[in-house]
Design a protein around this nucleic acid. Sequence first.
RNA 1: GGGCCUAUAGCUCAGUUGGUUAGAGCGCACGCCUGAUAAGCGUGAGGUCAGUAGUUCAACUCUACUUAGGCCCA
Length: 1049
Amino acid sequence: MFPKLKDKIDYFNLEEEILEFWEREKIFQKSIDIRKEQKIFSFYEGPPTANGRPGLHHIMSRTLKDAFCRYKAMQGFYVPRKGGWDTHGLPVEIEVEKQLGFKHKDEIVNYGIEKFNSECKKSVWTYKAEWEEMTRLMGYWVDMTNPYITFENNYIESVWWALEQFYNEGLIYKGFKIQPYCPRCETPLSSHEISLGYQTVSENSVYVKFKLVNDENTFILSWTTTPWTLPGNVGLAVGNEINYVKVKSENEIWIIAKDLVSILGDEVQIISELKGKDLIGKKYIPLFDIDALKSDASYRIYDADFVTTTDGTGVVHTAVMYGEDDYQLGKRVGLPQHHTVDKSGNFTNDVKDFEGLYVKDKSTEKKIISHLKSNNNFVKLLQYTHEYPHCWRCSFPLLYYARNSWYISTTKYSSLMISNNNQINWVPKEVGSGRFGNWLEENKDWALSRDRYWGTPLPIWICEHCKNKKFVGSISELQKGENVPEKIDLHKPFVDQITFKCSCGSTMYRTPELIDAWFDSGSMPFAQWHYPFENKEIFEKTFPADYICEGIDQTRGWFYTLHAIGSFLFKKPTFKNVLVNELILDKNGQKMSKSKGNTIDPFMLMKKYGADATRWYLVSNSPVWRPTLFDENGIAEVQRKLFNTLMNTYSFFVLYSNIDGFVYEEKSLPISERQEIDQWILSSLNSLIQTVTESMDQYDITKASRAINNFVINELSNWYVRRNRRRFWKSEKGKDKTAAYQTLFECLLTISKLTAPITPFVSDLLFKNLTSVLKNNNPPSVHLSDFPKVDKNLIKTDLEDKMNLAITICEHVRSMRMKANIKIRQPLQKILIPIIDENQKQKIEKVKEIILDEINVKQIEFISEESGIVKRKAKPNFRTLGTKYGKQVQVVANAIREMSSKKISELQRNSKINISLNSENYEIEINDIEILHEEIKGFLVESDNLVMVALDTTISPKLLQEGLAREFVNRVQNLRKEASFNVTDRILITFKCSETLNNALLSMENYIKSETLALKIDNNFIKNDFTTEEEIDGEICSISIEKVVTLPS
RNA sequence: GGGCCUAUAGCUCAGUUGGUUAGAGCGCACGCCUGAUAAGCGUGAGGUCAGUAGUUCAACUCUACUUAGGCCCA
């Protein structure tokens, strides 16, 4: 017996049971072990940080990771899946600082770095339990028992090894560069970190006027969006060839770019024009009196090619230490390089009256403006909205700030990265060529160092005396130092206690910086195996990855660091296929964020609908590389339509196979010996296998899932099962019934396997239930079975054509019944179909029974052109005519449209015909036209490109009686259902009604009896518990039924 | 300012190498079917396929530009 399903399935509980089964039977482990000897499919897990809560977008990328790993495993690959945790970096430190109530970095030092770092180490696991719970509930198979952890010594040692390779090639250098810098975290940010934190902000921009020294009462106008850089101003830049004007404003003369004069309003009056080069070298009076910035070069006008007239005034204010362009200009002309802002973002004591003020404070800004006003340097304020980089964790606005930093010179090998990138299969491909490709084209050196505490230390020791450097690339090398503690921990402050003797006799100390945590995660291909210190063979076997998958935000994060590190160390792409998934937006297309309060709790979804429905929805709703507009109703719909339909199809199968004792113990019947409709559904099933396999191979899971959805709902349930119900419950046991059972069983079992990668729970339930009665050795779980392979011999397009024709004909008839207001229960005598050719007739003959039964009509009458009641028409086939006749196509097409019925027949007979038009001769072949029927005289018709159907709507007294009988049967069946009788129970029927109906029912007695499993029907109505009063054809009819208790024979 | 993506029914999405009636689901109205179905089917309302120009015998489809939105970067 096949297990029955509950009437109402609680998917969350069901999934819980399956999870317990998987865990008890170690199915995940087995799914890997049984394929251990097979070819490897290498997958890299991008490590999440467990000090943030998992969200819906994690379900998305993890579903995709899981689905393709399961798919490849079922195809026979060995797919190990090692989990990992990203544990270093600022987010962790910030979280701990918050807990400890720290506002400033100094407090960490006072607290003690050792204590602080041990807090960090704990904090890393804050949401570990939630992550593990989510991973488990959603059915993501990844090995969490033995994950790689980026803070472990082994991991760090591998990272050091990697850094040493860069160092030995001379690719690590210390530079002085303008960097986006977070004054709160007191650290520069790498370019991929900046890309995580752009925000649109509206700020005050300031128009400032600088008084020229040698020109009477003349000012030059400049503009800045960062008023805090004004005290640091040491120069102005103009474009040599840009046109400027002098304008009169009250008593003063102002200089501004000609194109931008409109910002001053209509009041101003242009006095004269000049070129930028006329201004070069002029001196102006400083805005602030700052001794350290004074020099011969300071406070002059220079030319620069970065000056534009798109906004501002065409005059760029230059503060050497706070902008890339500024710095380059300053270096070129020898402006003083001196900070007016300290590392915490406060003004230094160089700026009198401003010392210690945080530069981005509104009050500081006000003070700057009032300083400008009182010195007559102020012109006006303008609200300016732009994208400005913010610290991706603490949200502080970044400052562009000149700093010392360690770099990796990635630009030295960017062409290698570009050529490696061309070997990667990006899905979708435009991310690889566009977003990622451009990034590589414009590659900048990687700012590697961080001035923080919790992270991988940069293992460079520098001599305090001769500045000689020593790179430590391993623990064993480290142990050669002095003050080496017994138990080594490769973190601050322990590594900082270790020193080395320099050849000059002095002591070498470690440079204090840490490295970017992105370097950690980008090192996972080898560091997860402690390569090259251990596991050489495992690493080599798993590198490069066949498949990785993350959100698009990782393009310049993990995707880049994997690629940059892998390309350099191993000269190969780090991954072969990468599936990029887009954001999940809310219903209204808004980004989900905590501040907007429109985030969705993934646990809530899984509890409400189950993980399977959520997974299916996410992958099928829209292509995963396009932003998904998330709508919870969509998940409910998946459950209601796809899952319920599939489960009901299974329940239907079980209901009857258990009655008949079908357990698939007999031999599988040859497909060719089964009914046409069985062959059709198996053909369709194999087409489905092909589509799913091809789509999955292209990482197009959306296409795959939609194809399955269509098959299950439309083809399997709505057509195959609906059309074949009678074969299951009406017919005697025998070959045909067995064919029906086998066919449906095969479909269901295949579906369980096709859906296994996407919906691992429901598919396993289906698989286990279906295989539970089989005698042969089936694996205990669908995930240990093999993915279906297409049998192309079973795909028969002519069969699919035939079925389409049948479906189309039925649609036409239903439509006509609707128009004529005749219910389907009312049998009708015939439909008429004018045939185009013998082939079409043959096709319809094959599916005739299906059609007649579906639309409740007794016969099909084929009519030929000779009958004289059909009018035919030819329709041009542009696909063939267009290529043949080009420009003449319209002329020929018109001629075809005007062809007479006789001409069409001639063409059919000879398969070609000549038409002459405008003294040109055209040959028309049979393929150049489609034959359509225009009307059938005296009948209601429906038609389309495939076929035309006419319906005979005459209802004879006999047909009417049959119709009434069917109505009656319907009422009895409803009553049976209400009474909860078993489908096999025999019954007795009594009724009372008008004479016409009475006569009809008695004349149809045998039919009614066989349809309702009644042993007896009579009109001596007896009221009982199962009585109903029904209206049939406008008359009242009382019906009672009664179960016949089977006596032991 | 640059790069990439998107624009098809009220909503969410399909639409093959260009081919002459642009589809589905949801929602709405009416009807039907049901001996598996909390489902399904039919009919109806709802489309200048964002706009303009071009290539072509033929453009939702190809090209260019424009507009709007999204993401990323300056």
